[in-house]
Design a protein around this nucleic acid. Structure first.
Lengths: 139, 139
DNA sequence: CCCGGCTTGTACGAAACTAAACTAATATGA
DNA sequence: TCATATTAGTTTAGTTTCGTACAAGCCGGG
């Protein structure tokens, strides 16, 4: 229950998340996405440019560059120069990207739901509230 | 609503997990462990041989080989032949390994606690309860 | 205006990871 | 019994990911 139990809990949490992603990978592949690409694509319309995206997803900038290059090559994302800051790339999903994102999100819904079904609606709401507090602000 | 909400919960949880592990990495490094090595070392005395360990941690066998080689080189783990099945390597942590494991577990728990400080006592209890439900029995 | 200091995205070489092939030992079964 | 299939662990070769350095652009103080 004291400190070491927290580590145990975290270890199990890690395993749970890994298991879900492993289960989801084939479904993502069927719509042509790698797992990391999915997370990047999913975040594109929220985080407007690569640096912000890297910060949000806690990935190195260099890695984000690679994933974006792939997504652009697949025609799922477009890059344009930000006229207010010429260093920045404004990012946006294409229609095809939105479509793929919808499909992949739907494909994953089953996996996520199966994991979260251990909690009832109220608990899921509470869990979400606490998570947002913990993750919030980037801290 | 349930599906996409579950996905949202998944993402938040994932982000939190990554942040805690990133925060813990320097502390683990100070006792001479990489993050992945920590997970392997932690599992050595539970899963007796590499194949089982790979299955439990959901890592490829080849990766486990590498991590174990490093842990053995550091004197934290010993490999012996299993006399009942000569293909198998029996694994065990050394005293030094146990010591490092205690220290690194404490370090991880400390990071966990630091993260939880954003919540008050009641919320911390609730969060842990929900997390335990979620990962319980490991599913 | 312009010079240092900061930020943005990318490129490149190195490190980490993994899929597949390989060696060795055990199990199966005709 | 002994060929065949299966399992354990490692090695190898190819890919992915990352740390560092860099060019380009922004910003603030003189």
């Amino acid at each position: 229950m004291p400190g070491s139990d927290a580590a145990q809990l975290w270890k199990l949490n890690q395993r749970l998340l890994t298991r879900v992603m492993n289960a989801a990978a084939p479904r993502l592949a069927s719509v042509g996405l790698e797992t990391k690409e999915f997370f990047v694509l999913d975040e594109v319309d929220t985080s407007r440019h690569p640096a912000e995206l890297a910060a949000t997803l806690m990935l190195p900038k260099a890695s984000v560059t690679v994933y974006l290059r792939n997504l652009v090559a697949k025609g799922l994302v477009v890059r344009t120069i930000d006229e207010t800051d010429l260093r920045r790339h404004r990012l946006a999903t294409t229609d095809a990207g939105k479509q793929v994102l919808r499909e992949s999100t739907a494909a994953l819904a089953a996996e996520f739901a199966a994991m979260m079904d251990r909690l009832d609606d109220r608990e899921q709401g509470e869990f979400r509230r606490l998570l947002e507090r913990l993750v919030g602000d980037d801290g």
